[in-house]
Design a protein around this nucleic acid. Structure first.
Length: 607
DNA sequence: TTAGGGTTAG
C-alpha cells in the first residue's frame, strides 16, 4: 500500500536536489497554480491553468493534479476530470474520491459505485471522505439495499463512529425514508458537528416530520452549539414549508435576515418555496425579485409555486421570462409549467409545450412529464386519451408507475370510466400490494358506478389482507395555533355549527357559478367505510377551508386551497374562492408583513 | 485537495 504522504515525499526528494532559489520558485509556482484553480469561475480559466500546469512540469505532482481534477469536477466536466485521472501517475485517495464525488455530483451514482469497485482493486485505501461520497451516491440512488451494503463495509473498515461518515449515513437513511435508522446513528455518535445536526434536521424535514425537525433545531440552539449556518437554516425553512407553517417560516426568515444569509441562493430558493407552500405567493414574489441573478431553480420554484396557487398564466409568463433571459429550463421546470397548464385548464398550451420540450429546449420528456399531461387530459374528461398516453409511457421504477397510474385511477374515477379505473387499480396493486390508495379509489369508482358488489369485494379483500388507510387530515395555522381536522371528525372544532353554516353558503355560491363538483358525495350515507372516509375527508377539508376563510390571512386559505381536492379541474371554483378571499380577507397579513420586513418578528419562538 | 443544502406530477 502507498503511504498517504507519498506525493509529499516524492516532491521533497525532488526538491532536495535543487538549489534553494529554484525550490522557492517551484513552491511559488505551485501555490500560484493552485490559487488560480481554486479561484476559477469558468471552464476556460481551468483549461488555461491546465496548460500552465503542463508547461510548468507539474503533471506528475498528485497534489496539484488533484486540485485540477477538482476544478473540472466543480465545472461539471466529469469527462475532462476522468481523462485527467486516467493520465495520473499515482492517483491517491483524494484523486479517487474527488472523481467519485464528481460522478455523484452529476447524478451518476452508478458510476460512483463502479469506480469504487475499481478503487478496491487498486492499492489505494478508502478514507472517511470516500465512504461519505459512496454513501451520498446511495442517497441519490435511494437504494436502501446498496446503502446497507456500504454501511456494513463502513463498519467492517472501522469507520462506523467517524463523524463525517455518520453524517452522510444519516442523510442516506433519511433519503431512503428510514428516519428512525438515521436517528439511531445520530444518537449513537460520540461527537456531532453542525453537519450531523443539519443532516438529522433534513432527514426529518424530508420525511414529513417537520415538527421533529423544528424541535431538533430548537435543541441545537438551546444547547448553544453554535450559530446556524445557511445549510441548517435552509433545512429549517424546508421543514416549515413541509408543515405549511407560515409563522415558523417567517420567524426563520427573520433569523436568516439577522444572520445576513438572505442573499444566499439556496436560502432564497427555500424561502420562495416555503412562502408558496404556505400560500403566500406574494411573499415568494418579493423574495424572488430580490434575487440578483435568478437561476433555473429559482425560476422553477416560482413557476411551481404560481402553478399550485392556480395562476397558470403567471407560471407561463415566468417561463417566458426565463427563456428571454437565456436561462435554460430543466426537467423540473417542465413539470412545473405542465402542472400549471393542467391546473388552469390550458390544455392546448400544455400539449404544445410537451411537443416542443425536446426540439426547442433540449429537454427529453420522461414519465413525470407524461404523467402531468395524463393528469391534464384526465381533468377535462379526456380520459381515453390519457389512458392511451399512459399505456405508451415507459416507466423506470415503481414510484413513476404509481404516479402515472394513480393519476389515471383518479381521473377515471372522477369521469366514470370504471374499466380504466380497474386496469389502473390492478397495476398499482401489483406494484405495491400494501398501498391503500388503489383499493379506496377503485372502490369509490365502483360505488359511483352503482356497483356495490365489487365495492364490497374490494373492501373485504382490503380487510382480509390487513391493508389500512391512514385517516386523512388537514390542518391550518391561525395566529400561531395549529388546528387539525381528521377525516370525518369535527369534534375538536368549537365553531362547528358556524363553520357548517358558512360551508353551506359557500357551496351555494359555488353552485351559482356553475360548480358541479363532488356534492353527490354527500348522499353516500350507506356506503362502505373506506368510501365514506374519502368523502368525509373531502368534507373536512371544506370545513377547514370555511374555518380558514373566517379566521386566517389570505396565505393560509390559499394553502388550504392547494389541498382541496374539490377544486381539481375546476378553474371556475378556484376563481370564485379567490374572489372571496381578495375582497374580504387580506388586510391583516399585509400589516404583519410590514413588521416582518423590518426584522421585528425574528427570534421570537426559536431563540 | 476529497463529506452536508435548493425546484418535481396522482
Amino acid at each position: 500500500m502507498k503511504h498517504p504522504l507519498n506525493q509529499g515525499i516524492k516532491i521533497n526528494i525532488f526538491l532536495s536536489s535543487l538549489s534553494q532559489q529554484h525550490k522557492h520558485s517551484l513552491f511559488h509556482t505551485r501555490a500560484n497554480l493552485i490559487r488560480n484553480l481554486q479561484n476559477s469561475k469558468d471552464f476556460t480559466s481551468v483549461t488555461s491553468t491546465h496548460s500552465y500546469v503542463i508547461k510548468s512540469g507539474f503533471l506528475d505532482d498528485t497534489f496539484t493534479i488533484n486540485h485540477l481534477l477538482n476544478s473540472y469536477v466543480r465545472m461539471l466536466r466529469i469527462g475532462c476530470a476522468h481523462k485527467l485521472f486516467d493520465e495520473m501517475l499515482e492517483p491517491n485517495v483524494v484523486s479517487w474520491t474527488s472523481l467519485m464525488a464528481g460522478y455523484t455530483g452529476e447524478a451518476r451514482p452508478e458510476s460512483t459505485l463502479s469506480l469504487f469497485q475499481k478503487m478496491k482493486e487498486s492499492s489505494v485505501l478508502p478514507n472517511e471522505f470516500t465512504f461519505a461520497t459512496l454513501t451520498n451516491a446511495c442517497s441519490l440512488l435511494a437504494n436502501l439495499k446498496v446503502g446497507r451494503t456500504i454501511h456494513a463495509l463502513i463498519l467492517v473498515m472501522g469507520f462506523g463512529s467517524n463523524l463525517v461518515v455518520c453524517s452522510s449515513l444519516i442523510d442516506m437513511y433519511g433519503k431512503c425514508n428510514k428516519v428512525d435508522q438515521a436517528r439511531i446513528i445520530f444518537d449513537l455518535m460520540y461527537s456531532r458537528n453542525i453537519v450531523s445536526w443539519t443532516s438529522m434536521i433534513t432527514a426529518y424535514s424530508q420525511n414529513a416530520l417537520g415538527h421533529h425537525a423544528l424541535q431538533l433545531f430548537r435543541e441545537y440552539n438551546n444547547l448553544k452549539l453554535g450559530i446556524p449556518n445557511h445549510f441548517m437554516l435552509s433545512s429549517v425553512i424546508n421543514a416549515c414549508a413541509s408543515l405549511g407553517s407560515l409563522g415558523a417560516g417567517k420567524t426563520t426568515h427573520g433569523v436568516v435576515i439577522r444572520l445576513r444569509h438572505d442573499a444566499n441562493d439556496v436560502i432564497a430558493t427555500a424561502l420562495v418555496d416555503m412562502y408558496a407552500k404556505c400560500g403566500c405567493i406574494n411573499y415568494s414574489e418579493i423574495v424572488f425579485k430580490r434575487i440578483q441573478n435568478p437561476s433555473v431553480i429559482h425560476y422553477t420554484s416560482m413557476i411551481v409555486g404560481t402553478a399550485k396557487y392556480g395562476v397558470g398564466t403567471l407560471s407561463l409568463q415566468l417561463f417566458q421570462e426565463m427563456i428571454d433571459r437565456r436561462i435554460k429550463p430543466n426537467d423540473v421546470t417542465f413539470v412545473g409549467v405542465l402542472h400549471a397548464c393542467s391546473h388552469s385548464g390550458l390544455i392546448d398550451k400544455g400539449l404544445g409545450l410537451l411537443n416542443s420540450m425536446n426540439s426547442k429546449y433540449g429537454v427529453n420528456p420522461d414519465a413525470k412529464h407524461y404523467t402531468c399531461v395524463a393528469d391534464m387530459l384526465g381533468r377535462v374528461g379526456r380520459v381515453e386519451e390519457a389512458y392511451q398516453l399512459a399505456k405508451s409511457v415507459k416507466v423506470e421504477n415503481t414510484e413513476e408507475e404509481a404516479m402515472l397510474w394513480g393519476t389515471l385511477l383518479s381521473a377515471s374515477r372522477n369521469h366514470g370510466r370504471v374499466d380504466i379505473a380497474l386496469e389502473a387499480g390492478k397495476r398499482l396493486m401489483v406494484s405495491n400490494p400494501q398501498a391503500a390508495m388503489p383499493y379506496v379509489t377503485l372502490s369509490n369508482a365502483y360505488v359511483l358506478a352503482g356497483d356495490w358488489e365489487n365495492a364490497y369485494t374490494l373492501r373485504s379483500r382490503m380487510k382480509h389482507t390487513g391493508i389500512r388507510k391512514e385517516p386523512g387530515c388537514s390542518w391550518i395555522e391561525i395566529m400561531e395555533s395549529t388546528y387539525l381536522f381528521y377525516a370525518g371528525d369535527v369534534s375538536n372544532c368549537v365553531q362547528g355549527s358556524e363553520i357548517l353554516r358558512f360551508l353551506r353558503e359557500l357551496e351555494e355560491r359555488m353552485k351559482e357559478r356553475g360548480y358541479l363538483g363532488e356534492t353527490k358525495g354527500l348522499v353516500f350515507v350507506d356506503v362502505e367505510e373506506e368510501a365514506k372516509e374519502q368523502i368525509m375527508s373531502l368534507h373536512s377539508e371544506r370545513l377547514a377551508l370555511a374555518f380558514g376563510l373566517m379566521n386566517t390571512p389570505k396565505g393560509t386559505i390559499i394553502r388550504i386551497m392547494k389541498n382541496l381536492r374539490m377544486c381539481r379541474g375546476c378553474h371556475e371554483a378556484f376563481k370564485l374562492i379567490s374572489d372571496i378571499v381578495e375582497r374580504e380577507f387580506i388586510v391583516r397579513d399585509v400589516n404583519r408583513f410590514h413588521h416582518f420586513k423590518n426584522g421585528l418578528c425574528a427570534c421570537r419562538d426559536f431563540w
